[in-house]
Design a protein around this nucleic acid. Structure first.
Length: 874
DNA sequence: GAGATCACG
DNA sequence: ACGTACGTGATCTCC
């Protein structure tokens, strides 16, 4: 052999390190992947940096080794391997096979011994060796030609142990590592050593006496407790040294010649990465391979679309340059069916009369990536779109809301279709992002349309298998069009009102700022929790009640507890409150008002939340202040789009608790809602065992918190935090609640049990959420999953109900030929604008439609209000 | 880009 | 013993 580089990896040790260094990731089938992922990251890095010519991953063969004949309790008391890790070993083995890296294990020996034996063989031939492990024991193998890499924090950060490094760090030679272990032992392997001797003492002894034997030869020079301890444990020390010694002449049946490494079989590696959903690795490092894997496509670039190009059913893809489709550049359009593939520039497409007619014709069926985005973008050019029968993004979301990517390439690959490039591959990212040549762009867009064309059947089948086809077809798909119209219509915002409030705030903020600086005795950045913490808890000496990862917590609930202790606290709270209004709601909203129409056009993300709710972005119109009066004034800026019109808002009363009553079938709760009782008062009566007249406002407040807790998946700790009571008192409240509502208790138990059985929970309309962590042995993760199992059917069913109501409402407005428009949705409320003469009609039909969107075992109740601004709809 | 904070349901 | 309320998005600081 010539100049080679031999890389020897300790498979078990590295798999363990990766497992504990990373959170418990899972793929969509609920298989844990964190260990394999971490191992892969490390492997990629080391292959990259070291370019080895020979490789081996050594594994432990089983529980019993030759060391157990020396010491029966070797590695005793060790926690058994967590099942979340055990299940990953087969995948790790498969992955290594794909990398074409030899693996080896030997009965009765540990991975260490295989590595030790091979490293000595390589050394004898003068080869360079690199050993990688998470176990410092291996450093005893370090030599002039062998370097031992030990993982530090995380998984890709390694400390390199050469003899010089060991000398510097410990003051001993690699050989003496075993003497050190003999004296100090190793709790993780249950090697006893000499009790009372730790690393420092062991090293001191070794510097003077060189070895375990040397220490005992010189035992008479020692004195006191140390001498006694050493004398009492001589046998044990010598045995411990033997246990810690790595075997370098294990009877292995492979040699260096068997380790030659040629590089990975990337096709196989990618297949496994896909199976395990290693998305970042797939995107980052496999550009070349992914590109190679694409099939050839052909397409025609058109300059005009005529009837001959169009058929009764096609995939249509409008490519946008960024996700903000209300303003994004339109880059091109692709049209694809079984026989055709066209690319056309947007101007040419819009200039084609046949195309516009075809797009607006609902009898011509279209398959799209994201129908709402296309609809909104077309709308900007007064181009209509109808006849959408497939929306890939929505279908994927319904199949599994955990699939979060919005890139067609990534999404397609999730469902087995790999012929699309990622946007990053085509456009680049960050400052380098740019539009490529027409040919390249056209291909990219056509590939997306082809994906959508081909994925329709696959997705339809999945949806039908899951009994989710109706949810998708009759709820989400029509809702996309409705939301698209709401977004495009937008909501009118009076700029001057915001500016006026902003000026008022600016004055107050400057004043409070000065007061705070004066109280603190210096100026500092009040917006910096770090600087504020120093002022409050060090300079002013206030008690730090709570800590965050990075330092003192200065969150509002902490400061409120300090309010009596120093006058500055209330000023800080007010500064925070007003500062939030200024930056997020005054400045933030002003930036979002479109200059052409004076309106704000939010985007509803329909395929994002894990529960089925919508979310609202750019800006978020679902969190406009309402709870405090100062903030609520912001709503005065939200006005009707036409002079004299009125805003009309309707919200569901207690929809989540009503859903709970329905799903749990709890008699008491059902009864309460059928009789339209005040549910928090009713809860207070049951929890505090009092009559309605005796319920105080504090009791009602506590009962309200209990009801929230029930919906969130209750825990005594959470409730105790919320109510500032002891955990025991909180537990007592919960206990009494569950005794009063036994059906609820039964439901909570059943839903968690059910989730463990099936791996997912469902809503009234069969929306799913997978909960892979619900069987985790990690207390924390399992707890989260259990609370999610309790909460998601409630929150998600409420979302189902209002979505259905929106569809019914849109149909009703159209059927009754009303001018009224649905503008906003805020989880349990709908906001409309209408001419004054239609208000009386809305008062009748809005509650009627919303209350009967879905029939539950209890009535749904809707409250409404109207006025000249959003502020007045209370 | 992450963490802290705070706005909403 | 463990260490938490469920679901979001925007802004600010600091690395």
């Amino acid at each position: 052999m010539g100049k080679n580089k031999v890389l020897l990896l300790d498979g078990n040790s590295l798999a363990y390190r990766a497992f504990f260094a990373l959170p418990l990731l899972t793929n969509e089938h609920g298989i844990h992947t964190n260990s394999v992922y971490g191992f892969t990251m490390m492997l990629q890095k080391i292959l990259d940096e070291e370019q080895p010519t020979h490789m081996l991953v050594a594994f432990d063969a089983g529980k019993t080794t030759f060391r157990h004949t020396t010491f029966g309790e070797y590695k005793g008391g060790r926690q058994k391997t967590p099942p979340e890790l055990s299940e990953q070993f087969p995948y790790l083995r498969k992955l290594l096979t794909a990398y074409q890296i030899p693996q080896y294990e030997l009965s009765m020996f540990e991975a260490d011994d295989i590595i030790g034996t091979l490293s000595k063989q390589a050394e004898a031939q003068g080869q360079e060796v690199i050993i990688v492990s998470g176990d410092k024991d291996l450093t005893q193998l370090s030599s002039d030609t062998t370097t031992v890499y030990i993982t530090r924090k995380g998984i890709t950060d390694m400390e390199k142990y050469t003899p010089a490094h060991i000398q510097e760090k410990y003051g001993i030679t690699p050989n003496q590592i075993i003497d050190m272990k003999g004296l100090m032992g190793d709790s993780s392997d249950n090697i006893p050593g000499v009790p009372g001797v730790g690393e420092k003492t062991a090293l001191k002894l070794l510097v003077e006496h060189h070895s375990v034997d040397g220490v005992y030869e010189a035992i008479d020079q020692l004195k006191g407790k140390l001498k006694e301890k050493l004398e009492a444990n001589e046998e044990q020390a010598k045995m411990s040294k033997v246990l810690a010694t790595i075997e370098t002449e294990a009877p292995i049946t492979i040699g260096l010649d068997d380790l030659s490494y040629q590089g990975p079989d990337m096709d196989q590696v990618i297949k496994i990465w896909q199976e395990l959903a290693f998305k970042s690795l797939l995107e980052k490092t496999t550009y070349a391979q992914v590109e190679e894997a694409k099939s050839e496509i052909t397409f025609t670039q058109l300059t005009e679309i005529t009837e001959e190009h169009l058929s009764d059913e096609m995939a249509v893809h409008l490519e946008l340059y960024d996700e903000q489709y209300h303003t994004a550049d339109m880059l091109g359009i692709a049209l694809v069916d079984d026989k055709h593939a066209y690319f056309i520039k947007v101007e040419d497409a819009f200039a084609s009369e046949s195309f516009r007619t075809w797009l607006a014709d609902d009898s011509k069926k279209k398959r799209l990536v994201d129908s709402k985005a296309s609809l909104a973008a077309f709308h900007r050019n007064d181009v209509l779109l109808d006849g959408v029968e497939f929306d890939f993004v929505l279908a994927a979301y319904i199949v599994n809301p955990a699939i979060t990517s919005d890139d067609v390439a990534v999404l397609s690959r999730e469902f087995g279709y790999g012929d699309v490039f990622t946007n990053e591959q085509v456009y680049g990212k960050g400052a380098k992002k740019s539009v490529p040549s027409d040919a390249e762009l056209g291909e990219h867009i056509v590939r997306k349309a082809m994906a959508v064309w081909n994925l329709r059947t696959i997705m339809d089948n999945k949806l039908k298998d899951n009994e989710q086809y109706e949810l998708y077809q009759d709820l989400e798909l029509p809702l996309a069009t409705i939301l698209g119209k709401m977004e495009s219509d937008g909501v009118k915002v009076d700029r001057q009102t915001l500016v006026d409030i902003g000026e008022d705030l600016a004055g107050k903020l400057t004043e409070i700022e000065q007061t705070i600086y004066h109280a603190a005795g210096e100026t500092f950045n009040i917006n910096s929790p770090k600087q504020l913490g120093v002022i409050l808890f060090e300079k002013l000496g206030l008690p730090a009640l709570k800590k965050t990862k990075t330092g003192y917590s200065t969150a509002a609930d902490v400061l409120e507890k300090l309010e009596g202790k120093h006058e500055v606290i209330s000023h800080i709270l007010l500064f925070r409150q007003l500062g939030k209004l200024q930056s997020t709601y005054i400045e933030g909203l002003l930036k979002e008002i479109h200059t052409d129409d004076g309106k704000i056009h939010t985007r509803y993300q329909q395929a994002l939340t894990q529960t089925g709710r919508l979310s609202s972005t750019n800006p978020n119109l679902q969190n406009i202040p309402v709870r405090l009066e100062e903030g609520r004034k912001i709503r005065k800026a939200f006005v009707p789009s036409q002079p004299g019109w009125i805003l009309f808002a309707a919200d569901y009363s207690q929809i989540e608790l009503r859903v709970l009553a329905h799903m749990s079938d709890d008699e008491e709760l059902i009864d309460a809602f059928r009789n339209d009782l005040d549910i928090h008062t009713k809860t207070a009566m049951d929890v505090f065992h009092v009559e309605a007249e005796a319920v105080t406002s504090d009791m009602r407040r506590a009962a309200k918190a209990v009801n929230f807790g029930i919906v969130y998946g209750i825990s005594d700790y959470g409730l105790s935090q919320n109510l500032s009571i002891t955990r025991k008192e909180a537990a007592e409240f919960i206990d009494r609640y569950l005794k009063s509502f036994p059906g609820v208790k039964q439901y909570m138990d059943d839903i968690v049990h059910d989730a463990k059985q099936k791996g997912f929970v469902t809503t009234i309309l069969n929306r799913r959420r997978y909960l892979p962590d619900i069987t985790s042995s990690n207390f924390n993760l399992r707890g989260f999953a259990e609370r999610t199992a309790m909460n998601t059917p409630i929150q998600g069913s409420a979302a189902d109900i209002i979505k259905k109501a929106m569809i019914d409402m849109a149909a009703r407005l159209e059927k009754d030929n009303l001018q009224a428009k649905m503008l906003l949705q805020v989880h349990d409320e709908l906001i409309f604008e209408a001419p004054p003469e239609e208000i009386a009609i809305l008062e009748k039909i809005v509650p009627e439609v919303m209350e009967h969107a879905i029939e539950l075992k209890v009535p749904l109740k809707v409250d409404y209000a109207y006025g000249p601004t959003w502020y007045d709809t209370k």
